[in-house]
């Protein structure tokens, strides 16, 4: 297993993180080290072992299908970098 610059570029794109060339170079080394290190798990025999997503084993409870909100629009928009007329503003997405 080895991570090259095209893999780093691809993963950064998937993660929606812009990285510069210097970061790219460092990340290639670091990710190779870290993934090389976690590779030791391959030696653990996990045949017929069920994957464990959570330790929580209580059954989740059903609740009434009813909308509840204690917030008003303005409270929510107050934290947004840009809003207008009760909406979030984003760059133009259609030509």
């Amino acid at each position: 297993m080895s991570i090259d610059n095209s893999t780093v570029k691809k993963v950064a794109k998937l993660a929606r993180i812009e990285i510069n060339e210097e970061e790219e170079t460092t990340l290639i080394i670091e990710l190779n080290n870290i993934l090389g290190w976690v590779d030791e798990l391959k030696q653990v025999n996990t045949d017929s072992v069920e994957p464990m997503l959570s330790v929580f084993n209580e059954s989740m409870q059903m609740r009434e299908d009813k909308a509840e909100s204690n917030f008003d629009n303005n409270q929510i928009l107050d934290n947004s970098p840009e809003s207008n007329s009760g909406f979030f503003v984003v760059p133009k997405v259609v030509e």
């Binding site: 929606r16 934290n79 947004s80 979030f88």
Partner: peptide
């Protein structure tokens, strides 16, 4: 978009990244 720091950009994908 909804909260926190934003770095402005010309298109949406660039804004995220």
């Amino acid at each position: 978009i909804r909260y926190g720091f934003r770095h402005n950009a010309d298109d949406l994908n660039d804004l995220y990244q």
